[in-house]
């Protein structure tokens, strides 16, 4: 097992897997999957809840009992104003200055709105938030987010909930190379453990996912798979991947090759 730690948002963590809390078959299954993943950050949300419903109490009690860091999101917001209000409400409810900033610009592919995201990030950072902005894999948008003070950037792998994996690894690599000191998390689009491994091999600091675990046939087992996938990718990155070659090169020694070689 890898024993390294890393820092994000002022916290020292061991796990580089950030896990969502939605879409599980049951609250009990969610709880078990989150535990199995060994993730130390779980994403949550805020929604309208009428008097007497009280259903959120059960969910929130489960999350609190996990005793891990909570990352509230602004999912469903379509403007900087909406996202800022939601972030302020989340700070009070969840007692954290962390916010996963999501400002959606298109309802079809749930692509983040870069203009509103940057605007909201700037205001929230000035208001004391630690902003985890969900963005596309656009290098210039990442630059603008860094310019307004984001220490963390979360480019998508592909569309939210699509499970398509990393659509554009070259763009993700460019962001990594340009911002070696920022914390970079691939957020959204992960479908298989190998996608998470790939993101980590690119040098990303972590992976945030939800559907890939929650919608698996066995979410608990898949949570375990992702735990190892993220760790394998990180170890692979740290180990230094071999250079690709355009030709074959035998790994078995050629000296002492037995007799059949002379008849070929």
């Amino acid at each position: 097992m890898n024993n390294d730690t890393w820092e994000i948002g002022g916290k020292t963590l061991k796990s580089r897997l950030l896990i969502g809390s939605a879409l599980y078959p049951s609250p009990a299954n969610m709880e078990e999957a989150i535990k199995e993943s060994e993730a130390q950050i779980v994403t949550v949300a805020l929604r309208r809840q009428s008097a007497g419903e009280g259903g959120g109490n059960n969910f929130w009690n489960i999350i609190k009992a996990l005793n891990i860091h909570v990352l509230p999101n602004t999912a469903g917001c379509h403007s900087a104003k909406e996202a800022i209000t939601t972030a302020q409400m989340a700070r009070e409810v969840f007692d954290t200055n962390w916010i996963k900033l999501e400002v959606i610009g298109d309802q079809y592919n749930l692509q983040p709105d870069p203009f509103e995201t940057v605007k909201a990030a700037e205001i929230l950072i000035k208001d004391g938030f630690e902003v985890f902005p969900y963005t596309t894999d656009d290098l210039v948008v990442a630059k603008r987010l860094a310019d307004v003070g984001c220490k963390i950037i979360m480019p998508w792998g592909s569309m939210i909930g699509s499970g398509k994996g990393l659509m554009n690894p070259d763009n993700l690599t460019a962001i990594r190379k340009q911002f070696p000191d920022l914390k970079l998390i691939v957020d959204a689009g992960i479908g298989k453990p190998s996608h998470a491994t790939q993101a980590m091999e690119l040098g990303y600091d972590g992976v945030l996912l939800n559907s890939a675990i929650a919608l698996a046939q066995d979410p608990v087992k898949m949570a375990n798979a992702f735990k190892y996938a993220v760790e394998a990718g990180r170890l692979g990155h740290e180990s230094g991947v071999m250079q690709e070659r355009a030709f074959a090169s035998p790994s078995t020694p050629t000296i002492g090759t037995p007799f059949w070689h002379q008849f070929s």
């Binding site: 969502g20 809390s21 409810v93």
Partner: peptide, 10 residues
Amino acid sequence: IDILAPVQGG
């Protein structure tokens, strides 16, 4: 008036 409470999120 909006009254928001914790729910599951990704």
